[in-house]
Design a protein around this nucleic acid. Structure first.
Lengths: 202, 202
DNA sequence: GGGCGCTCTGAACAGCGTTCAGAAAACCAT
DNA sequence: ATGGTTTTCTGAACGCTGTTCAGAGCGCCC
């Protein structure tokens, strides 16, 4: 009775083929450049077939989004294991920035695209949602830094959001308005982090 | 011989009518929702006519962009006159954030839209380009704060970019991922500014 | 082998930016 | 006022987009 299993497998395979083609297209042309017909061409199926595997174009974007959070988490993951709490916060920030700058189209898809379809991604808010987990990594590091007396004892979520938004500011501007920032990106990012953490000391 | 003058005036008027319709549409539907056919409908002309007044859709966006920088400058302008240097920096940040949150679609158009056509906006770089002037307002305030001994004597451009990117981070995330930031926006923005400036003290 | 169900597609719809030949209108000179 | 020139405008088209749906084609079970 392996027939239904095989059918399920084939179905999953085609679904994955669609996602693979979409990934490639987003990587090279951005989500704006992602087209149902281009995907269909790439996998050699009719455009109509895509709708048997995904509700619509946004559903594909949503799926890629969730994957992207996983990638972000990987970039931050190694940094999250640094022992020294303050150094860990720096490392996380660097990992985050590195992810954004090495995967600008993915980053744009997650954090810089109009929220219409993103609402459903963020609406999940379960504890194992990668986005939430990425944020929790920061909050944990903040708590540790507070416990070690490196950061004043205010709401760790607030502190985490301060760190997050400021790093997001650097990388998102760098992605959108290339060449508009005069300072070298790394210096800017590092100085910002350093000043912020200094200002957050007890 | 006021005929050529009248023709020029009428031409300018229709151009302005196009821009007015475009402004309204961007305001309500964002730049993505701005359509040549919708503009044409609004002003009761054929879509083809628009191309006699603007090279293409992006040229209209570019024009709106330059206007938007003017608006931003107005929001920051009053703040730029605060006497106390440190308080002035706070006021400028508040003005900037207020502009972004009260005109999200305009802000998105300027700083969050893919740069393809923006390059020409930023490429100007003349001294009276509103974007440059807005940034200079910050740099000047930084210099004043440094002269008053409130900020350590490092490159004022770097400091200005640190302040700019961090505020941009808050407002752009607030615009794109509404409800994802848990902290009240004003508190987040204010705390961030305060911590940053504290960290930048000599 | 016949019938059922699943998978897939061609064709279409409505919309998009943009172009261009030609209609229409405005102007000028006679 | 009339004819001709110039400026302004538009209908129709091209190729693209996301999406839908009737029906074709094929594999599976009885």
């Amino acid at each position: 009775m392996g027939i239904v299993q095989r059918k399920e497998r084939q179905r999953a395979e085609l679904r994955e083929q669609i996602l693979a083609a979409a990934r490639k297209l987003v990587l090279s042309e951005g989500f704006e450049g992602l087209t149902m017909r281009k995907i269909a061409d790439a996998i050699e199926y009719s455009p109509a077939t895509l709708y048997l595997y995904f509700e619509n174009r946004e559903a594909i974007g949503r799926q890629l989004c969730e994957e992207a959070f996983g990638h972000l988490l990987r970039y931050m993951g190694t940094a999250a294991q640094v022992a020294d709490p303050l150094e860990r916060l720096f490392a996380i920030g660097r990992g985050y920035a590195q992810y954004a700058l090495e995967n600008p189209e993915e980053y744009r898809l997650i954090f810089m695209t109009d929220a219409a379809y993103m609402e459903q991604v963020f609406a999940v808010k379960t504890d194992d949602d990668p986005g939430q987990r990425a944020f929790d990594v920061v909050v944990d590091a903040v708590r540790a830094a507070q416990a070690a007396g490196h950061i004043r004892p205010i709401d760790p979520t607030l502190v985490a959001e301060m760190l997050w938004t400021s790093t997001h500011g650097v990388v998102s501007l760098a992605i959108t308005c290339k060449d508009v920032l005069e300072s070298p990106l790394e210096e800017l990012s590092e100085s910002l982090h350093a000043a912020l953490l200094r200002g957050l000391a007890p």
